[in-house]
Design a protein around this nucleic acid. Sequence first.
DNA 1: CCTACCGATCGGTAGG
DNA 2: CCTACCGATCGGTAGG
Lengths: 216, 216
Amino acid sequence: MPRSQRRHSGYEEETRSTILRTAQQLFMEQGYRAVSTRRIADACGLTQPALYHHFADKQDLYVAVMKENLVQTQAALERIAHRDESVEERLKRVVLYLLSNVQHDHTQMMHDIRQELSASSRAILDEAFQTGMIAPIRSLFEEGIQQGVLLNQQQSGVSTTTATHLFMNMLSQYLMQPTQHFGSIQHDIPERERAEEVIVHIMFHGLANVHSTCHN
Amino acid sequence: MPRSQRRHSGYEEETRSTILRTAQQLFMEQGYRAVSTRRIADACGLTQPALYHHFADKQDLYVAVMKENLVQTQAALERIAHRDESVEERLKRVVLYLLSNVQHDHTQMMHDIRQELSASSRAILDEAFQTGMIAPIRSLFEEGIQQGVLLNQQQSGVSTTTATHLFMNMLSQYLMQPTQHFGSIQHDIPERERAEEVIVHIMFHGLANVHSTCHN
DNA sequence: CCTACCGATCGGTAGG
DNA sequence: CCTACCGATCGGTAGG
């Protein structure tokens, strides 16, 4: 349907969602500080002051972007969690989802939230991050423990929360923006397609040779 | 010994090393873009233009900081690698060293190198990073394979380079700057003191319950 | 949603 | 190593 048939408020909503979508991509790629409000506006075909009709300030826009991102992520992760598959299989799906749909490096997001935002914005995004990403993944680890396929904290010394953070940290390697030619580092990450196998395998079985460690 | 007894060139060297030390700490904590040259100068008790007597520009300072950092890291890691201990034990020492002495979040450094620097600075630091951090840790993984305690790439599907990057990524969780009150996230990372046990344990043995997975 | 503009701050230079 | 200053860019506002 052509844009000219929409009402004015429809225009506003469409513009707002364009800004959100554009800003999300830029913030994900480059982080809060490196993305100026003018670059966001340019990418939307707007002037920079126009952004301030839709969002109070840059922080407000960033918070809105991240909240929407995390709400979508939560829905997707809970859909994955309810599949009738093994915990291991579902964690692989989580990796695949996060790599393809949530391209935001989780350590960069944590850095931005902690270093660039006010205490109130920080509190809002902390909540959304816990609920939208940490909790759904952590419950997969907890389910693995209850099923007896994963060691509990007394046995392994690792809480499900720590396991979740470590799990997500392992993703960041595959989320970094490739650059024109970063020499050997880029060349040294050839297994992008099998990231879910690698990460979940290490998380479950590690790299030890069982013939030398399993029978002690 | 009082400063007034030093020669002029001694002054210059001392100032240069003060700048390097100060800038290192600030860049580590906050990243390239968030640290202005004026803040570095202020922290050194200098005016901002004085920095340009010692370094061509901000990038040049950043490169010098990181190169020095990586040279020290390489020396320390190679000392650890030559100890007469198991690969597992030496990897724990690597974790402890990196957490206490190289407080720079490795994903933040990669981000800065890729996003903020010119191609030539990028090439220089890529080289230093490969030589100073990746290579020493990777050779520990390779030694583990040769000793038969770790699976090789054919067996695990994970190259030693990938293992090294994942290993370092797991550190970032413990390297993030704590903030005044970041709610549950800060509270959810209580095992800072045992980071080396947790990380190396997962890297070797994973979290699977061996009674349900080892005999398949 | 635009034009026009603000003060602040950035990296960097001139000149001594 | 300083003072003084540059153009560029930042986030944000005024006024329509």
